[in-house]
Nucleic acid binder design. Structure first.
Lengths: 221, 221
DNA sequence: AATAATTTTTAGATTTACCTAAAACTATTA
DNA sequence: TAATAGTTTTAGGTAAATCTAAAAATTATT
């Protein structure tokens, strides 16, 4: 269908469009793919010819419906393979990203559907990200970032927005894993770090770390 | 490590060297990869530079120890993934070849070892081919081709030497699957077809089909 | 609005893997 | 052994994806 490289571009464009408002910039894509702006421009022309993106020179791009569907398919595969690696092959959540990055390009829709079935139609991957269904539908999780939560609130960690191994290993050590209940004690004015209770322990988390932890707030009492 | 394409060349060279005696010819490789002799020559130079093959112009190639090890690694992955697809995802044996052809290039030794463990360290793939262990060792099966068996002999089907879907579906219809006991009634002089008993039924199998069925003969009574 | 800074695009090259057509080599056989 | 058939290699070219350096366009700043 689409080349390995095209799929990576679509995926990155999709991810950026979910986090940044407006059209997606050439430099942002270059950054997300560890490549140069000139290479991105070349590929944008190609993706535009294939009607996978809407592209206006110097103005950035947006995915077309077709492009969005293709991107979501890749993301679905990535997340299903991550579940496979953790649930079945006993990998840790910090080990699976790079392998899933390769597996996501395996091209067989029947394989994806069988895998989904085998895994019991999981709704979320090991990092808490929602897994799109066959038709590309998923409920985006109503989350808030840890560094934005007001003092006194309580909630449950439902995901992370960074998947690097060092970050995840750090979280593991702090006991900040998915499903864990937390209570915010306050934010340190000096460095923006967050004071919180986890597993009956009071810990301090840097702002940088807090920015990548997604929390579902508890219904207010 | 090695590119997708390099791995495919090594794999094909290995397979040819197992079936044909002597060095592997350029044309045979081109044939096995559905490419042209000129392209093969280009790649042979590259593989030779990397010391994966011994190559003398016009004389064909042989794998070096390094090349052989790389080829066997790919074959190990291919066969393990086939077991996964059939045992876990409930694919039929005629559906798995093409998907495994993609999966075999996924690059992660820990993944392969975990998969092997998950599958219970299988010794053979769904087509009866032996699966090399971590170190590349495997017992080659002592088999004989169906068309070479003498009248009156009995045996058990232990494998096939063609993996195409039409061929395997045909075998399935005839009841000629792995583990099935057969008894040779004779060979038809006119067309070389084989008369045999399977599941208490007398059937006739064309020479072309018989050539791709591997049988383990029963100890003579 | 003019200038400076930043971003993006163009131009021209490189690498990998492939192709066709022609030349060179090897094997066959008359 | 000379001609011919078959195989393999060389020569020259294409397409995908990348790069660097320079030009062009946009955005920000006096």
């Amino acid at each position: 269908m689409h080349s390995f490289t095209e799929e990576n571009y679509l995926k990155v464009i999709y991810h950026i469009s979910q986090t940044e408002p407006g059209t997606v910039q050439t430099n942002a894509i270059a950054n997300g793919l560890n490549t140069k702006a000139a290479s991105v421009t070349d590929m944008l022309k190609k993706l535009s010819d294939k009607q996978l993106i809407d592209y206006i020179k110097y103005q950035g791009v947006t995915l077309t419906e077709k492009g969005k569907a293709a991107a979501i398919k890749v993301i679905r595969k990535h997340r299903l393979w991550e579940v496979f690696l953790v649930d079945k092959l006993k990998f840790r959540w910090d080990e699976v990203h790079d392998i899933a990055e390769e597996l996501e390009h395996i091209n067989s829709s029947i394989l994806v559907e069988r895998l989904d079935d085998f895994l019991g139609f999981p709704k979320r991957d090991p990092h808490g990200d929602p897994i799109p269904d066959q038709h590309g539908n998923f409920e985006p999780s109503a989350h808030i970032h840890l560094h934005e939560i007001a003092k006194g609130k309580t909630g449950i960690i439902i995901g992370v927005s960074e998947h690097s191994s060092p970050f995840l290993i750090h979280l593991e050590k702090l006991g900040l894993t998915i499903g864990v209940a937390i209570a915010i004690h306050g934010i340190t004015a000096y460095d923006g770090s967050v004071e919180l209770m986890v597993n009956a322990q009071k810990i301090n988390v840097s702002r940088k770390v807090a920015q990548h932890i997604l929390v579902k707030l508890e219904e207010t009492e």
